[in-house]
Write a protein that binds this DNA or RNA. Structure first.
Lengths: 107, 107
DNA sequence: AATGTATATTGCAATATTACGATGTTAAAA
DNA sequence: TTTTAACATCGTAATATTGCAATATACATT
């Protein structure tokens, strides 16, 4: 078929998979790493830093933003992207749970 | 183009992206969670548990195995899958690094 | 040898992802 | 008002992913 059968899995599993998918592309990890360093980043700067075109970078930024890991706000014609610490915390928790479950009996 | 430009990113970023991609499908998370619970699992049992066909389950198992997160051994006609704790440790470390970098200034 | 059981592989259709040029959109600057 | 700058979106080509039926492989049992 070609479509993931999400409905057969639990909600927390789907949630982790969705966030892992955001991190499943190196450009998006680089973006998050880079934004972590500044307190508000521009698409143009990010696109130069990670050496992808502006449209491609913008597209990745939208994907990360949709996941909740990024916030942004306009100031004039510039859009400043920022990490969303709360959502990053959620991600951390979900991974923690995953490791707890997966390590339960295997180690 | 449609192909990820891996070469423009650092090695550790690509490594984390590769492992995150393994976790980017709910079926693969469910499989790892399930295998964590037993000490050696059969494809047939896993496929019944997660309610995907045997070929689809086997395919996911190969993808996880290729990432190093699973080991397996044959015993007769049965193949027993097991978590690879070392590789799980690597994953944990990579995530830890990612969180360190990303949280550096944002929080 | 023939049958059954567990698994892997192949082939394919449906869909998703990745990348970028071209084209809007918006707001500051000239 | 025109120009410039920053960004988002559209359109599209190349490629990757997902899922399963059909088939192949390998061992165990009869």
């Amino acid at each position: 078929m070609g479509v993931s059968k999400r409905h057969i899995h639990s909600m927390s599993v789907n949630q982790l998979a969705d966030l892992a998918k955001v991190l499943s592309h190196p450009a998006r990890i680089s973006i998050l790493n880079y934004i972590g360093d500044c307190d508000g980043c521009l698409c143009k700067d990010i696109s130069e830093k990670i050496r992808l075109s502006q449209p491609t970078t913008s597209q990745h930024l939208q994907i990360i933003k949709k996941s909740g890991l990024l916030k942004s706000k306009f100031e004039g014609k510039s859009q400043y992207y920022r990490i969303n610490p709360e959502r990053l915390g959620t991600l951390k928790e979900l991974f923690h749970e995953f490791f707890e479950t997966t390590e339960k009996k295997c180690c």
